[in-house]
Design a protein around this nucleic acid. Structure first.
Lengths: 160, 160
DNA sequence: GAGAATAGCTCACTGAGTGAGGTATCTTGC
DNA sequence: GCAAGATACCTCACTCAGTGAGCTATTCTC
């Protein structure tokens, strides 16, 4: 942002610099995802969906279409279309939920996972290397900071 | 990602956790942007464009349509459309370059900037507060780390 | 100054995402 | 036990963002 609108404050300026770097990282990650989408013939949204589904699996959360819609900030119809595309490409499988006949659960295929590793593997290796340059203590400091940032961001997306 | 594909390695696992947090922050930022887009009647891409234009201004870089296209990872035609939309909404002004008659420069209007502050102000305040909870030394540690991460990410997007 | 390269644009088209509305299943109050 | 309402997901018709093809104007190169 055009920082001049805010009063000059050296302490705040340093913090602001950090926030800008954070945003810059987000932008680059977005671009990398877009590139993955292009090379795989998927769409940006499809890739975002895949990533969220894998996140859900990691976290042990049941990924339903409506859950995914919320994660993507999209309508349920658009999410239905995303799931269709991913299903047609063999990246996702839809499994009818046993406890709730209306609902279904989404599972990412092994093929999609290995495709992801193929593309993001080298990138991830560099990120891991960058991260392991820090001491364990420094790493947990950064991790805690990022967790706090996530909470701060969450407070916004909870708007009505 | 489904980490099980990779061999278990506690050191790597800790670094991986950090990378996941980083990605999580990126996802939340993206959602916040989408929400800003919805409340202002803009599109996600338009907001991303505005942010990149403000970044360029901050960095003292000349923002041309082709530069913007590269930043957004989009074709020049799509970028032309984005600029048209932003221009029509009064958020951006197109100024013919004096040094190169083919090119033009893009400037974000004051109105767009204050609109951005209005929405992102509270969010930014929370982020700044989160950041200022760190000591100056810790802040610069995180800043340096994020800079390194940006470089690591850049090495990917430079694919042919 | 001719030819190649570059910056940006218009046009026609595809398809991602939305609003309206439908079906099947689950929940609740009687 | 069943009607009324809520919920989860889906289809249909439509809009408009983004793409490919191809154009014009300007600048660079020899």
């Amino acid at each position: 942002m055009r920082d001049g609108v805010m009063p000059a404050d050296p302490e705040r300026a340093a913090a602001m610099e950090l926030v800008h770097r954070l945003r810059e990282v987000a932008v680059r990650l977005e671009l990398a995802m877009g590139e993955f989408a292009r090379t795989t013939g998927l769409h940006g949204t499809d890739v975002r969906a895949l990533i969220r589904l894998l996140d859900a699996e990691r976290a042990g959360v049941d990924a339903t279409p409506s859950w995914l819609a919320q994660q993507l900030g999209m309508t349920s119809q658009a999410t239905t279309a995303v799931i269709h595309r991913l299903e047609a490409a063999g990246h996702v499988e839809r499994v009818r939920s046993r406890s709730d006949g209306r609902s279904s659960q989404l599972q990412v295929s092994d093929a999609a996972v290995s495709l992801g590793w193929q593309f993001f593997g080298p990138l991830l290796d560099r990120l891991i290397a960058t991260t392991e340059a820090l001491t364990p203590g420094e790493q947990s400091l950064v991790t805690d900071y990022l967790t706090a940032v996530t909470s701060a961001l969450d407070a916004t997306s909870g708007l009505p």
